[in-house]
Design a protein around this nucleic acid. Sequence first.
RNA 1: UGGGGCGUCGUCAAGUGGUAAGACACAAGACUUUGGAUCUUGUAUCCCAGGUUCGAAUCCUGGCGCCCCAGCCA
Length: 564
Amino acid sequence: MPQANASAPADFIREIIDEHIRTNRFQSRVATRFPPEPNGYLHIGHAKSICLNFGIAAQYGGTCNLRMDDTDPTGESQEYVDSIIGDVKWLGFDWEDRLYYASDYYEKLYQFAVQLIKIGKAYVCSLSANEIREYRGTLTEPGKESPFRNRSVEESLDLFKRMRAGEFKEGTHVLRAKIDMASPNITMRDPIMYRIRYEPHYRTNNKWCIYPMYDFAHCLSDSLEKITHSICTLEFENNRPLYDWFLDALELESHPQQIEFARLNLSYTVLSKRRLIELVENGNVGGWDDPRMPTLAGLRRRGCTPEAIRSFCERIGVAKNDSTIDMALLEYCIREDMNERAPRVMAVLRPLRVVIDNYPEGQIEEFDCPYHPQNADMGSRKVPFSRILYIEQEDFMEKPPKKFYRLAPDKEVRLRYGYFVKCVNVVKDPNTGEVTEVHCTYDPETRSGFAPDGRKVDATIHWVSAEHSVPAEVRLYDRLFSVANPLEAGSDYVGHLNSKSLEILRTCRVEPSLKGVAPGSRFQFERVGYFCVDPVDSSDQDLVFNRTVTLRDTWAKISEKERR
RNA sequence: UGGGGCGUCGUCAAGUGGUAAGACACAAGACUUUGGAUCUUGUAUCCCAGGUUCGAAUCCUGGCGCCCCAGCCA
């Protein structure tokens, strides 16, 4: 398990824990948990919580449990459980043998409910859903007490037993806590503890037809697991009094401290399970693991490493301010990580044919090219060079603007790890005027990239040998949404989907060393970006690369500025 | 016109009465066989208004703004 380093940021949660340790609350124990509901895939917002909970446990020598908060059979499934387990593991965290399920506590939870009825703190209410809503009051008006509120303990006990036995239809009865219908905190207005639902649960199947609500189940699950710090997001702040109320009413010894922090928002994407499900179900993306998705599955398929995501989670901090992190920070973390680990390799995404007029026909040379400019330990590979090459279309301009350093008529550039070449002629499509082939001469004295006479070139460009390179498909991914805050103006966030979030290039040529690379392996295509062999669609016969993130592109900024 | 939370650089975020850390972004420059990487440099008086104090982002008072809560979701 990754250890929190000594310089781990001291956020307000850690301050609270330090205080608890100082005052010997919880006997200096620290026990946290990550409690997802298995009704969707984990996203990077969950990663923040995972890193927080597991990170704190590691830092304080405590434990962190993984618990499926599966109290609502609707939408929950084993598929999601499996994905959650895989994702947390992939992120690099270990819950050892502490994988728990709220559904395993159903019987105990039922007994707790019975106990609350017996001490007069819970009752079966037979109002309809609509009536319950009406009786609840509004934000500014107090609620009214249910006519069933003072039902006898015996009657509630009997009814509750029969609810469990399946004697009633859905919606006819619920179990409620007897608190205060006039509370200014709506959460405390006799909250529902159990509802009837004739829906098979993915784990308990048809054993139960009553299911506990979050507020009732969560605090008790925490207590049963002897959690000390129950960390959740800000929207549960209103629920904290209720969290405490149940534990106090049952006089439980294990009474965790709930602490709330601000959930993660990321620009140019959405991070709510509901919307992510919509994107998947509407077919706006290819699935939960579509590389454009902010899900852990999507980020993984795109090529992100767990290290990059953990680094991101450390950098963003933990506080109570509503905040939106700039996507640029995530991209930075990915580049930072990739820069160190990705072998450099050459690939031409949009090929332009180059003929070296004075290079002997049929001659082939092999250049030894290091995999990493700053790390010789990563070794090198041989890259073949020949008379006909491909370069990137955008690396040649017939009429270059002032600051364009690359190849142009009469201009000399260096081919990476190869020779200096000078453009002497172009061939154009007679109909479109488009340049279809560039003719160059090379200087044999400049082999491996240096001129003995000391002359310099403005640019170094990448290339592949036409004959030796291998074809590949490259998928260029970009931000999912075209605006920073897709949710800003109401609900038409789908309208802000970035139509250019995926561009598929099918005529790419990559250097021959890439033949047979393992799915999931990551590379830097020099001067282009970081790429990952698609773990799903790539094969030895058909190479498919996903762009994880571009390189920082100063030229793009300059040319953008010039255009304005 | 209820209750709960939050307001420090474009975006995050330290700061806990002693004179505004850091990161990303941005800008300028150095270096460079990736217009990459790296390195230097630059950029805020703290939502507003009063008050307390020798001294306030930090304390007090009053405003203003934003978020959450009226699921038999979590």
